[in-house]
């Protein structure tokens, strides 16, 4: 996982490649529960819906969507956790 490992400020990363939505979003929500405020979670996913549903999750749950980075397979989505 070359790029996600190097993602700046990364505190946790979750590899959900090969799964379909809502699995990546559910994994993100689970990870968020164990995060301290301000931590950054990176989700790796190759389901095309993740591109829309991870930013939407951030908006709906008041977390901060940072950026996406295209990988060889799928994309890495970085999210800053704002609440427990």
């Amino acid at each position: 996982m070359p790029v996600s490992d190097e993602w700046p400020e990364r505190d946790q990363w979750i590899d959900k490649r090969g799964t379909l939505c809502p699995a990546p979003v559910i994994a993100l929500a689970r990870a968020a529960k164990s995060c301290a405020v301000g931590e950054v979670v990176v989700v790796l996913a190759d389901d095309p819906a993740a591109e829309f549903d991870i930013p939407a999750w951030c908006r709906m749950t008041r977390n901060t969507y940072i950026a996406a980075e295209l990988q060889d397979v799928g994309s890495a989505y970085a999210v800053r956790i704002n609440e427990g």
Binding site: C21, P22, V25, P48, A49, E51, F52, D53, P55, A56, W57, R59, M60
Partner: peptide, 17 residues
Amino acid sequence: TERPSHVLAAMGALTGG
């Protein structure tokens, strides 16, 4: 199409569920 709705995507809406 195995793609989420382009309408929901363009609106920035959640496409799952």
